[in-house]
Nucleic acid binder design. Structure first.
Ligand code: SF4
Ligand code: SF4
Lengths: 170, 170
DNA sequence: GCTAACAGGACTAAACTAGTCCTGTATTTT
DNA sequence: AAAATACAGGACTAGTTTAGTCCTGTTAGC
């Protein structure tokens, strides 16, 4: 199935609302109302996002949450990382050494590459896209093109190179 | 985390062995031995792959499993589809209509696009890559480039277009 | 008829997910 | 100062999914 968790999904919905009106802080209750997600759940999501540094919180009356940085600067990977931990398709990607087959298995390297490719792809999807307002400007086209090129490179590149990229990008 | 299930992972390992010597049928026991995965588990994996049409099975003595088609013709998506059902990042991708938020949520379209992009990316990773023998031929580079372009297009395209592509490709 | 090997499905334990709730703390308003 | 607002952290539960095993039946070769 290869799916993201429902909470991660909710996170993007909540973030979309925050992105809409980035100036003022929004309380969890307000966001629950706007998104139609139950308050305790929204609250949980927001706490995770705060820990991940994607939203800033202010306590007390008239407090609430707001984006920690511009929407254009928050990507799908960031959201996933904050909600479920770093993207890792296989065991050997997330916890190297913990898979018994690692010595003999030769698929590992390929998965590493695929993982990286997906990660890069996700990195190019910003909150702007996630809000549903498709940006069709040329700037957008350029970044997409760039990512596509990198994507091809990542797929083609050998393991060593892939790991170097990963180290530099991660 | 966004991970594939361990069984899917095993599937690629098993398929890699099958790809190595595509001529003769391999019994589940043989494959278990070659991969160091427990026999019942290998058996389960193979049954799923057979149902998915990726391997062909022969019963009886001297029977076993072999690839149903050339390794170059089996992609990562095929494996995932066979093992865990079609890739679907969100609820609304796999079961449209089942999410309560679908009426108000505007992230759905974006996830649809991302989902498609990932699917296409995975489609370009064949068993050949998964066996660990990185093919660096020009043919490979070309297909990677092609996918990259499509990838960019998919990311940039509006919902309508994305859905059209999906319908045609799926 | 015996044996090798797949087919199908039942079953279990463990892990993860979604969702709720409670207790505490910071900030503002009155 | 007191009260109200709102986040922080974590415990907890029910439900689902995953990994892995096992058993019973069927098919093919010798
Ligand atoms: S790819 Fe190979 S080494 Fe990595 S987790 Fe899967 S089986 Fe283990
Ligand atoms: S993206 Fe929106 S509509 Fe789709 S499953 Fe998530 S919340 Fe529901």
């Amino acid at each position: 199935m290869l799916r993201i968790s429902k909470l991660t999904d909710y996170a993007t919905v909540v973030l979309a609302v925050l992105a809409e009106d980035a100036a003022a802080p929004h309380s969890a209750a307000q966001l629950a109302d706007a998104t139609h997600i139950a308050l305790p759940t929204v609250s949980k999501v927001l706490k995770a996002l705060q820990r991940g540094g994607l939203v800033a919180s202010t306590r007390g009356a008239r407090g609430g949450y707001q984006l920690a940085r511009p929407a254009a600067n928050i990507s799908a990977v960031d959201v996933i990382d904050a909600m479920e931990g770093p993207v890792g398709l296989t065991e050997c990607v997330t916890h190297p050494g913990s898979c018994d087959l690692e010595a003999t298995c030769r698929s590992g390297d390929a998965w590493q590459r695929v993982n990286l490719a997906i990660r890069r792809a996700l990195q190019d999807v910003t909150l702007l896209e996630l809000t549903g307002r498709t940006t069709t400007g040329e700037a957008r086209a350029v970044t997409a093109g760039q990512t596509a090129a990198e994507f091809a490179a990542a797929l083609r590149a050998g393991t060593l190179r892939a790991r170097t990229i990963e180290g530099g990008v991660q």
